[in-house]
């Protein structure tokens, strides 16, 4: 590399001095990163360890705690409310994740063309994603209100019986899935649309020339090219689904009859409603372990897919 920057020639002595200065930069480096390091590590590592200790204790957030060893974990395994919270969370995840990812892919493919209004279509599909869970919850509590909601009003118009919606324990969880699909599919669409720009046009052309139909191109060229994105989205959506809370808090508060009590709702309730923080921390560790397993499993399959 010539020692010319712009039109100036640099004196070799100045260059050496500059190199020397670069070696003594430890203090500057630490000064620059210390606010982030202190805040991020302080507010994550300390709480993670603290949580682990809490999970072996009985704690009501106010008085000093006492050690109980593994009692919290043992009690958790026998708690029918926790078991059903796990069941509800898994049911929600199994419905929401595949539907949002597959739906997102289908919509992204449909939107991946240059026609009139395509920008508008993309905006409308995506816009619910930026709406907060609280706002979604309040809006759909109104839409699905059994008495004043527009949903029952429309059912009435077409001669169908009124529904209980969030008041019906068989309908509440599927409705949460539907609302999440409305707001969460757009994210998959955006990521897939970005990914589709990276699918090699030559490869698609070559497959066409070799006689592949539209479905053949999709199956043998497009889907394999998108597989790292698919794995990412499955991971991302699963982690989000297992952590569902806000929407439940705003719409059903875990009801009716506990039918929408999901794991994080259980954790929140145990810690901040019934003030059994140690028990809650044990449940949180259970969830974190599950998330870790999901993450590791998908990382492994991702490495395989990349090979």
């Amino acid at each position: 590399m010539a020692s010319v920057v712009g039109t100036f020639t640099i004196d070799p002595r100045a260059r050496k001095a500059a190199k020397r200065r670069m070696r003594g930069e430890g203090a500057t480096g630490w000064a620059f990163v210390s606010p982030s390091v202190l805040l991020i590590l302080g507010l994550s590592i300390v709480p993670v360890v603290w949580s682990l200790l809490l999970s072996f204790q009985v704690n009501d957030l106010v008085s000093p705690s006492s050690w109980v060893g593994l009692e919290n974990y043992k009690a958790l395994l026998q708690d029918p409310t926790f078991a059903s919270a796990v069941k509800h969370t898994l049911l929600y995840t199994v419905l929401y994740v595949p539907l949002s990812v597959v739906g997102g892919l289908a919509i992204a493919i449909a939107l991946n063309r240059k026609i009139k209004f395509i920008g508008l279509y993309r905006t409308l599909v995506f816009v619910p994603f930026v709406v907060s869970a609280a706002a979604q919850g309040v809006l759909f509590s109104f839409v699905l209100d059994p008495d004043f909601g527009v949903a029952n009003s429309l059912l009435h118009k077409v001669g169908l019986p009124a529904q209980g919606f969030f008041g019906d324990s068989a309908q509440a969880l599927p409705l949460l899935v539907l609302i999440s699909l409305w707001s969460g599919t757009g994210f998959c669409v955006i990521v897939y649309l970005a990914g589709l720009q990276g699918v090699s046009a030559e490869l698609v052309e070559a497959a066409r020339i070799d006689g592949a139909g539209k479905l053949g191109v999709l199956r043998h060229v497009v889907l394999p090219a998108l597989s790292p994105i698919t794995v990412f989205l499955l991971l991302f959506q699963t982690i989000g689904a297992l952590q569902l809370f806000d929407l439940v808090f705003v719409t059903t508060k875990g009801g009716p009859l506990g039918s929408t009590t999901v794991i994080v709702y259980f954790i929140w309730e145990k810690a901040f409603k019934s003030f059994t923080a140690g028990y809650s921390a044990a449940a949180a560790y259970g969830l974190a372990l599950a998330l870790l397993v999901v993450g590791v499993a998908l990382q492994i399959s991702r490495r395989r897919a990349a090979r």
């Binding site: 994550s44 993670v48 982690i239 952590q243 994080v264 809650s280 921390a281 949180a284 560790y285 969830l287």
Partner: peptide, 10 residues
């Protein structure tokens, strides 16, 4: 990768 639920009580 640390979920928020794990850190919220502490």
């Amino acid at each position: 990768v640390i979920p928020f639920q794990l850190t919220m009580i502490p």
